[in-house]
Design a protein around this nucleic acid. Structure first.
Lengths: 150, 150
DNA sequence: TATTTTGGTAGCATGTTGCAACCGTCGAGG
DNA sequence: CCTCGACGGTTGCAACATGCTACCAAAATA
């Protein structure tokens, strides 16, 4: 089990997010789910993870509301794991990780899998952090505002 | 040590990213670094992590090119840990995690720390995944394009 | 010079991961 | 039906990672 409740009381959203999906396999499971994996065996073959680990991770993600266990779409008696709306909301996280990886871990000519617009077949535009009025922001342009109790 | 080289040969950028920063503490260290933490003790007090763990994480992040160990800015003989350009490029990842946490782990009226535009004091605009021509994309609008060897 | 702070390391208990073996259920073929 | 392989796990155990505490040297402070 992944039971790290140290920061459940944290007021930092990053900490709670990391608490939910911040281990090695969970993010890759979510990536595969975006990629179309649904069945236990699909995740297992794709990730090469031990079955007991996968089972506990899937349980944790289901308990955390990221995945949902639903009857198999092909009519069989098996079950499938699909992203909930909360899980789908992780899309920008996965895209951000993907773009960071592309830019920092691959030589310019090195082949890698690429996420593309299904319509145009074009790679995506790099994510931009924008202010409320649409200005591009760098880390230095932002600051953490501590909310005491409100 | 964090020695998970299982996916070093993976062609998926997400896997390589997760390999570099996908453990529980690394992302929180990076978050604190964006937040202004520089010294060993700052990270330790902020995170409440054991010192040996923090030491190994900092070493791993420095080895991975995310952080850099530089002489202390106050002229003392100590050293500081600052983000490299590669580390600064994680900004969208942290913002994405923060926004996901805000939207999914806090009651509407529950107080939490907030990242704001330093100029306006306004919270940031939610990240958007855009196609090359600027259209907003949902997960279903994208697909992974496998690059074989090119 | 004495004392505290800083930034670690060492040892050990505990928790987590991962491999392999096992096992009940499902589904297809005959 | 009946059998046999695939599916989706669980269990036991070994190896490894994590975390707590104690300790320590160098740097700052008084």
């Amino acid at each position: 089990m992944v039971t790290r409740t140290r920061f459940d009381d944290s007021d930092c959203p990053v900490a709670r997010s990391v608490d939910a999906i911040g281990d090695w396999w969970s993010l890759l499971i979510v990536r595969d789910a975006f990629d179309g994996s649904r069945r236990f065996g699909e995740f297992q073959r794709s990730l090469g993870v031990a079955k007991n680990i996968l089972a506990t991770r899937l349980r944790t993600l289901v308990d955390g509301g990221v995945l949902e266990s639903v009857p198999a779409s092909d009519g069989s008696a098996y079950r499938e794991y699909v992203l909930t709306p909360k899980g789908e909301a992780l899309f920008p996280v996965i895209v951000a990780l993907r773009q960071w990886g592309e830019q920092n871990f691959f030589a310019p000519d090195e082949p890698h899998s690429q996420l593309v617009d299904r319509r145009q077949g074009q790679p995506l535009r790099p994510l931009e952090v924008l202010s409320a009025d649409g200005q591009r922001l760098n880390p230095d342009d932002t600051t953490v505002h501590k909310v005491s109790t409100q």
